[in-house]
Design a binder for these strands. Structure first.
Lengths: 190, 190
DNA sequence: GCTATTAATGGAATGTAGTCTATTAATCAA
DNA sequence: TTGATTAATAGACTACATTCCATTAATAGC
């Protein structure tokens, strides 16, 4: 439903894209905490209230900006012929970790924001956390169907373990690299 | 080394304990974000600067206050005769989860604070995170010595997986209960 | 007592997220 | 063109953590 309005000044779509790209650029350059709302709206060339007309908080804006980017990086764990699910999963994790070289600090800041803003937490969980968890769960379930993972394993819990380890290391600023991906999966695929 | 000072007004030790207990009480009652520095110093009956003479930030103060309490709850995973390590560990996790009914929200707030304050992150990691991770690792290593856990398992990674899952659920406000502890260990002790 | 030293105090100052308000701009319908 | 409606803008305002500063208090050595 396009929800055509019958009257009123139309929303300026350019303002939204300008705000998102300004936010993403500034945050990547200076770090989430160092970027003020004032700087974002100045960079985007719009009024402060225009930002708050579209997003409730800085975190909501940055989440949306990062979210659109992130989906380019790690859309789906790809099944390739001739590769078992463990190898595919490891390659997928490495791709995510590479993305975190760019946006890991921002993601940490968003997770932090979610801890004192329950509305944002809910949005973050629904739009970001849960889809990614489900993606891995579905991948593992398919692996079970194909006989590459024992039916006895709990796919949901395995997905939690993977994401948990990943969050834990991210939030404690430990290195997320190929070695970690391999060691992690070594302990889960047994 | 007691570091006896030769001159100068001595530090008022009561101010520290008053600040810690005021902070802990207020934070448990109202939640970390709702408690202002002004309220803490008023409750403790000291000047604002006195707080900042001892701690760098609200997070540092609250961490110390919670830390002293926490050690009462979950000091060591106890070995009991006639119980295997998995059972002992499950009971230990349940004890931690019970503690989180009291201080879980505060802990979430501290983890959040660590994400935009690298000095605090380092302190939090050294004083809180790492000791707890080591505790489980040592426990698992002892279980390996006793033949209750295969030598082939990677005790450090298992400890990461346990803490990661626990952080992940905590930070996403999912229920940490007996069922979760059991399901978690089911997927690790295989 | 007197001096040097360090702590404690009250209050002002700074910086920032988010809110509120009054004014102006763009659109539709009549 | 006029009125209703909604968006955009500039700027004031609030609340709070943290810092800064000048003043006063408590101690040791003399």
């Amino acid at each position: 439903m396009p929800a055509r309005k019958l009257a009123g000044r139309p929303v300026n779509a350019e303002a939204s894209t300008a705000l998102k790209s300004a936010a993403l650029r500034l945050v990547r350059e200076n770090g989430y905490e160092k970027v003020s709302i004032a700087a974002i709206v100045k960079e985007a060339g719009v009024a402060r209230q225009t930002l708050y007309n579209r997003w409730n908080t800085k975190a909501d804006l940055v989440l949306e900006a990062v979210f659109e980017e992130t989906n380019n990086y790690a859309a789906e764990p790809l099944w390739e012929e001739g590769k078992d699910c463990r190898t595919s999963l490891e390659e997928f994790l490495v791709k995510i970790f590479e993305h975190l070289n760019t946006d890991g600090d921002t993601l940490r800041a968003l997770i932090a924001s979610a801890q004192h803003d329950s509305a944002f937490q809910s949005s973050f969980y629904t739009n970001f956390v849960l889809p990614r968890e489900k993606m891995i769960t579905v991948f593992l379930l398919r692996a079970q169907e194909r006989g590459e993972l024992p039916q006895s394993r709990n796919a949901e819990m395995l997905s939690t373990l993977i994401h948990g380890a990943f969050w834990y290391w991210l939030l404690n600023s430990r290195a997320l690299d190929v070695g970690f991906a391999r060691d992690l999966l070594s302990e889960l695929f047994i």
